[in-house]
Every structure is written in C-alpha cells, then in structure tokens.
Simulated assay, not measured.
Amino acid sequence: MTFDLQTLLAILAMAAATILTRVSGLFLLRYVSLDGSRRKAIESIPPAVLMAVVAPTAFATGIAESAACAVTALAALRLPMLVAVATGVVCVALLRAIGFG
C-alpha cells in the first residue's frame, strides 16, 4: 500500500466538512424555534437519507439484499434508525445463510 497525499487530504477535507456540518447544525438549532411542521420535517431527514443510501443496493444486487432493503424501509417507519439498520443487516445475513444470496 502506498501513501497518497491527495487522497489523505481529500479524506481529511471530507471529515472536516462532516464534522462542521454536524456541529453547526447543533449550534444553529439553539436559535431556531421548532413548531410542529418544522419538527416533523427535521425528523423525516434521517429516514430519507437512509433510503437514499439503501435504494441503490435494492436495485443493483440480489434477492437477499433487495428483501433486506424492503425490511429496512418498513422498519424505519416505526423503529429508531439504529434498530432499523440492524434489522436490515440481520435480515440480509439470514437470507444469505439460507441460500438466497
């Protein structure tokens, strides 16, 4: 494995952008009042991001992955995000273990 300075700088820049985005969101949220519709809009962001990450997998892979994506999407409607993702991981692992993957 070789050391590539440009790759390292790109990774560090992406990490800084991620951290600044998260920290600025927490900082700015102190100064914004969240009524019902704003709160609902903000709470819908994590499931939307999850589906944006999961959807390409559902269409580009096998039956086990597609089924696990559907299970994850359904779980995300009612369960906390971490539980929904864990449910999808367990589902794909079980489906692969029984021969669907």
Rank of each mutant, 00 (worst) to 15 (best):
R22P: 02
G25H: 00
A17C: 10
C69L: 09
A64N: 03
A17H: 01
S33D: 15
T57V: 13
G101T: 07
V92Q: 03
S37L: 12
V53Q: 00
L34G: 05
A86N: 01
V90P: 04
I45C: 01
G99A: 06
A41H: 02
L79C: 10
P80G: 07
L29W: 02
P80W: 05
L8R: 01
G25Q: 01
L82F: 11
L50E: 00
L9S: 09
Q6H: 12
A58Q: 06
A55S: 11
A93E: 10
V54M: 08
V32C: 04
F3N: 03
T18L: 15
T2H: 12
A75T: 07
A52T: 12
A64M: 00
A17E: 05
A60C: 11
P47Q: 08
A15S: 09
L12H: 03
A58H: 04
P80I: 12
G62N: 15
V90W: 01
A41P: 09
P56R: 00
R39Y: 06
R22A: 14
E65D: 11
V53C: 08
V85P: 02
S37M: 11
P80F: 07
A84C: 05
G62W: 00
A48L: 14
R96D: 15
V23I: 13
R22W: 07
T72K: 06
G62V: 08
V23A: 14
C91M: 11
E43D: 13
A15G: 03
T18N: 14
V23Q: 08
P47L: 07
L29S: 15
P47T: 06
L28Y: 05
V49L: 15
A41M: 12
V54H: 01
T87S: 12
G36F: 06
G25L: 07
C69D: 06
F100M: 11
A15M: 12
L94G: 06
E65N: 06
A70T: 15
F59W: 05
L5V: 15
A68H: 05
R78K: 14
